[in-house]
Design a protein around this nucleic acid. Structure first.
Length: 491
RNA sequence: CGGGAUGUGGCGCAGUCCGGUUAGCGUACACGGCUGGGGGCCGUGUGGUCGCAGGUUCAAAUCCUGUCAUCCCGACCA
């Protein structure tokens, strides 16, 4: 798989310049750390949105929309939450511009200073909990299962295209429950939905786990996450789901009356995935020829390219192509017939390879004569001549086959790049020479975690939720450890 | 905010050290012809106040000062 990609990926910017820009998904917008998502990139996001939205609704969630601006006073009600976000907020202080006295352009009108500053949401817990207070009185109002599709702004020091942009698109779910157990179950349910989406639709294998104290979401009691391994050996957090306990309910005074007539604070969760997932998709499957998209998310699953020398041949080829397109569409396959005469076939072959279209069909005069079509698959870069009557079944089968192949390939890569170590020296050596996921025992203290981070730049990605709870002793301190945890260098 | 680098047609770059004709190359774009089963070839053409503002000089993309922006490395992070 992607023989040169691993080395290329060590230089992150080159990787993106070569692949993302060439694949035409996004570009830097010129606004600090923000990006323009181009139509093809956005089409991928829309496919992701559609599938996630369906899964949310199937589990009883509803969409709503809350304001972009959050009064600073709301924001300061939950102490640990503000600690987590204070350093990366954009703040609105004025509401008007005026012409500069010296004619040099427009300046902020000092007269138009806001009484109370507004924060551009870095996440919406505060404004949503402010609102939830008005929506919840009785256990009959619960659970409240709300999702919002929105943009948020986090003024990070160091933005990275798709992975950490100043403004990004995401969905954020916010729920309120009558009991603690119900809230925990919700947080776990959403983690499972994310897992299902990322693995089944994106074909990206993930490890489910919980975050350590230091990596936990600001204001949460438990942060569940899914971690994926990119082709350059670095980990990427693909999604998080937080159990918030009663922290936000207490901060915003959201109480309800239960069946016995007792008043209590509600129990909460929040969960989100972002356009970072597009980055994960690219960085998991792409090769040196460009993007490789899983069929389930590809905006075009099949592209048909006609080959011809003159109008007459085009007419013959088009007849076969259009017939094929109609039949494929009736099977629910997204097909594009690219009969532009402004580009040559060779050009188109390359273009759709950059774009990662899973299956390419070429039809020329020879095929019309012989009753064949040429079918090429993006994941293996192989092509074969197939009798036209077998084409439909072949292509339908390829949709599943390519989807599975991508997942299996990524899973195999991850297996090959996951190492279990026992000692700290071995840990450092693996990290330096191989990278990837490393499983090792840890004594559970912040101090040890911090020490490892400072010395190696590796962090604990999560404490995995799988069944392998074999106790041992910490690789650094030798103190007892309940189980191995997952380390990696991360984006 | 610390360290490093870069700003030159739409995009990617050379030229800058050592100032000197009309600022050059690739690509893209437009037109014509040959082409067309993996980014084809030939020809013609459009497009640049060299990031911005000062300064030095007979002369500045090139030297000096200032300034702005972007990118990379670090602290921060979905």
């Amino acid at each position: 798989m992607a023989k040169n990609l691993t080395t290329r990926s060590e230089d992150y910017s080159k990787w993106y310049n070569d692949l993302v820009i060439r694949a035409d998904l996004a570009e830097n917008s010129g606004v600090r750390g923000c990006m323009v998502i181009k139509p093809y990139g956005y089409a991928i996001w829309e496919k992701m949105q559609a599938e996630l939205d369906r899964m949310f609704k199937e589990t009883g969630h509803q969409n709503a929309y809350f304001p972009l601006f959050i009064p600073i006073s709301y924001f300061s009600k939950e102490a640990s939450h503000v600690d987590g976000f204070a350093k990366e907020c954009a703040i609105v202080t004025h509401y008007r511009l005026k012409n500069a006295d010296d004619g040099s352009g427009v300046v902020v009108d000092p007269e138009a200073k806001l009484e109370e500053e507004l924060i551009v949401r870095p996440t919406s817990e505060t404004i949503i909990w402010y609102t939830f207070r008005k929506w919840v009185q009785s256990y009959r109002d619960l659970p409240l299962l709300i999702n919002q599709w929105a943009n948020v702004v986090r003024w990070e020091m160091r933005p990275r295209l798709f992975l950490r942009t100043t403004e990004f698109l995401w969905q954020e779910g916010h729920t309120a429950h009558a009991t603690k157990d119900e809230a925990i179950a919700e947080a776990e349910l959403m983690l499972n939905i994310y897992t299902k989406f990322v693995e089944e639709f994106m074909a990206v294998p993930v490890i489910k786990g919980i975050k350590t104290d230091s990596e936990r979401f600001a204001g949460a009691l438990e942060t569940y996450c899914i971690e994926a391994l990119m082709q350059d050996g670095k980990a990427l957090q693909a999604g998080t789901s937080h159990y918030l306990g009663q922290n936000f309910a207490k901060a915003f005074d959201v109480k309800f009356t239960d069946k016995e007539g007792k008043r209590d604070y509600v129990w909460a969760t929040s969960w989100g995935v972002s356009t970072r997932l597009i980055g994960a998709l690219i960085m998991t499957h792409s090769d040196d020829n460009g993007l490789v998209l899983p069929p389930k998310l590809a905006p075009d699953q099949v592209v048909i390219i006609p080959i011809y020398r003159n109008e007459e041949q085009l007419a013959d080829v088009s007849k076969v192509a259009e017939q094929l397109m109609t039949e494929l569409r009736s099977k629910g396959i997204r097909v594009k017939f690219d009969n532009r005469d402004t580009h040559k076939p060779g050009w188109k072959f390359n273009e759709y390879e950059f774009k990662g279209v899973p299956v390419r069909i070429a039809i020329g005069p020879k095929d019309v004569e012989n009753g064949t079509v040429e079918i090429a698959r993006r994941d293996t870069l192989t092509k074969e001549l197939v009798p036209i009557e077998d084409a439909i079944n072949k292509i339908v089968a390829l949709m599943t086959e390519i989807q599975e192949n991508l997942y299996n390939r990524a899973a195999q890569y991850r297996a090959e790049n996951t190492t279990e170590v026992s000692g700290y020296e071995q840990f450092k050596k693996v990290l330096d020479t191989k990278g990837g996921f490393i499983l090792a025992h840890w004594d559970g203290t912040n101090e040890t975690e911090e020490l490892i981070k400072n010395e190696t730049k590796a962090t604990i990605r999560c404490i995995p939720l799988d069944d392998e709870n074999k106790p041992g002793s910490c690789m650094v301190t030798g103190k007892p450890s309940a189980r191995k945890v997952l380390f990696a260098k991360a984006y």
